[in-house]
Design a protein around this nucleic acid. Sequence first.
DNA 1: CACGGGCGCG
DNA 2: CGCGCCCGTG
Lengths: 256, 256
Amino acid sequence: MLEGKLEQASLFKKIVDAVKELVQDCNFDCSDSGIALQAMDTSHVSLVSLLLNADGFSEYRCDRNIALGLNLTSLTKILRCGNNEDMLTLEAQENPDSLTVRFENTQQDRMSEYALKLMDIDQEHLGIPETEYAATITLPSAEFQRICRDMSAISESITIECTKAGVKFSCEGDIGNGSVTLKPSASADHPEAATKIELSEPVSLTLSTKYLLNFCKATGLSPSVSLKLADENPILVEYPLASGHLRFYLAPKLDE
Amino acid sequence: MLEGKLEQASLFKKIVDAVKELVQDCNFDCSDSGIALQAMDTSHVSLVSLLLNADGFSEYRCDRNIALGLNLTSLTKILRCGNNEDMLTLEAQENPDSLTVRFENTQQDRMSEYALKLMDIDQEHLGIPETEYAATITLPSAEFQRICRDMSAISESITIECTKAGVKFSCEGDIGNGSVTLKPSASADHPEAATKIELSEPVSLTLSTKYLLNFCKATGLSPSVSLKLADENPILVEYPLASGHLRFYLAPKLDE
DNA sequence: CACGGGCGCG
DNA sequence: CGCGCCCGTG
């Protein structure tokens, strides 16, 4: 029996919004430590990994490990039925055939409850390799989104080059080319607005604009995002959550 | 070699926004006195004329006269890549094949740079005839925009009649008709909010609503706009800039 | 269905 | 000036 309660339905809504364009159906793996999700996108180019720790819920119990197979389009429809500020409870019985989604407003005078049918999804278990990253860039998530959006008007690829001095995003297309250079910055008053670079060696990757733009749907989940790079390895784009994270992996394009 | 720096990217963004719906491709004529543009709209009904004087730039140099042929749709894409408050630098080398557009934020920790390919555009040179105008009306640009927008719901034509007593905008359509009459007003505290009429003789012109509405995209560039009228001559709609102007000319519809 | 732009509020 | 909400367009 699973019961997980979030104080803000918006958290879960945003997560599902950020994932649903990449993945149609997937398992939410529930255990007593929390809820996790790992899935390749439909075209097997990128990978998404969600972790919601038990202590990120205001109430949580899960008596037995269980995989809840959900269609994310259907889940989105259900999640629209609640207000962002509502409390959200996810509930499943032993051997459930459906997930119960409950919304309660903070005044506790409105309760709505939906049951969403579960699907059987064969779990190709995904081993995510541990990578030693050459660079970790932390920047405001809105800034990263802005760069990806701007460059999407120019090219299907974005190159990220990182040195100690800064990080440079660049693209090349038919109408011209462009680059954005960010220098590390402190911003003592707004730590979220800082750009930080931790680097063991310079690194450069070229990535699909379309996928990066997709990852940016998670922007609303966190004021900052971190990009972890290692040559010829998938980039890791991580949005930290209050207790957990939403991670996206994307293999680089090969240099010709 | 051209180098022009504007303290506010928004100035150039708004100019291009106001022009791009009328003109697809055009030359920006750069000389040591500044940057100018003259172009007929695609259907050869209206004419747009921009002048940005050199002293309107915080830095300006142009060693040799040069015409930079640009596709305004592509230019718009590039200009969207900067923030309104960014500093904007336009740069071109001798015999350039591209225009460099650089944005820098005021904190100087973000720099972005785009190269936009240039086009060869054969310059049909436009002689703009000097006209002796019978009336010059100066009014708040937002007021003019409001009138054009309101009347666009009623008719494809707007008639502007001007006498010493005031200016009357009117339109007639299937659902009814309408008019707005403005009397000259002082507004000592807000000189921009004044309506002023200078007139040698009464004048009346009927004009295409669609084009006037298009000109109104320049509203954000200036708090006031002036309309210069002479019977059976094109109207001149002028938005003054800090150092220069953006002018639109539109031939009147003929009385039947 | 999703994205971008405009308007209003803090 | 930035953020969030609403509307219109592709």
